[in-house]
Simulated scan of single mutants.
Amino acid sequence: MTASTTAPAGAALNPLGLQNRPLAWKIGAVILGTVLLAASSYIEVPMFPVPVTLQTFAVALVGALYGWRLGGITISAWLIEGASGLPVLAGGAAGAHHFVGPTAGYLFAFPVAGMIMGWLAERGWTGQRVGLAFVAMLTANLVCLTVGAAWLTTLVGAEQAIVAGVMPFLLGAVLKSALGAMVLKLICGRMTRKGG
């Protein structure tokens, strides 16, 4: 059967179906998504120059569940909250200065990573196909690491950016991607049972 590979983009591939919901639902989803993203920022392992958090996990999950448009809007709204002074960034940090410091590249990569994840999810890279979901989640994580390290290079040089801004996070990226793929599988399974 090829139904799962030939379904039109977005058809039964977005587990929450937010694209078909009224505006009030979408606004509620954005608010809930920013709360999830903020909560993921508080789960932190301090490291220098960039801490390990569950942010990339939450960013990819929001992208997968919300789709590329609403996911990008949600992640951008969360970053605006942080820049505006709300304590929603890593470890409860806040303020616009984080968008020019060592973490700036990672922060700016988040909406891009979420939108890439959402775009892939809308094309079937979800929990219905857990291997593809893992690859999509890992891609989102690697986008964050790549853009983050590129910015970090301007501050500490290429070698130090890779040593301090990429290498310590690779295993975490794989583990968070596997966890994300399993969460998507569980959500898709629940939604299928509810719908069926």
Rank of each mutant, 00 (worst) to 15 (best):
S84A: 15
L86V: 04
L61V: 03
T74D: 05
V30I: 15
A60V: 13
A38H: 09
I43Y: 03
K26G: 01
P49E: 04
W25P: 02
T53C: 02
L23Y: 08
V59I: 15
A24F: 02
V59K: 06
W68N: 10
I27Y: 03
G33P: 06
I43P: 02
P49S: 06
V52Q: 10
L36N: 06
G63H: 10
M47S: 11
I75Q: 08
V50F: 07
E44P: 00
Q55S: 10
L54C: 13
L37S: 05
L36I: 15
I80F: 13
L36D: 04
W68R: 14
L32P: 07
A77L: 05
G67H: 08
L65S: 13
L86M: 13
L86F: 13
A39N: 07
P87S: 03
L79K: 14
V30P: 01
I31Q: 04
T34Y: 06
T56A: 14
V59N: 04
T74C: 05
L86D: 01
V62Q: 11
V35L: 12
T53A: 05
V62R: 10
E81F: 01
V30W: 05
A77K: 02
L36W: 04
Y42S: 05
G85A: 05
A29P: 04
F57K: 05
V52P: 08
S84G: 15
W78D: 00
T56I: 13
G33Y: 07
W25F: 15
K26L: 01
V35C: 01
G85E: 08
A39V: 15
I27D: 05
W68C: 06
A64M: 15
L61F: 06
A77D: 02
I75A: 09
T56D: 12
A24W: 03
G67Y: 10
V62L: 14
P46H: 02
T53Q: 03
W78V: 00
A24C: 01
V59L: 09
V45Y: 08
L65K: 12
G85Q: 06
G72Q: 06
F48E: 13
V30R: 02
A58R: 09
Y66C: 12
V30A: 09
W68V: 03
P87F: 00
A77G: 03
L54V: 09
P51M: 00
Q55K: 07
S76H: 03
L23I: 15
G85F: 03
K26F: 00
G28R: 07
A29K: 00
Y66P: 11
V35Y: 00
S76V: 13
S76Q: 04
Q55A: 11
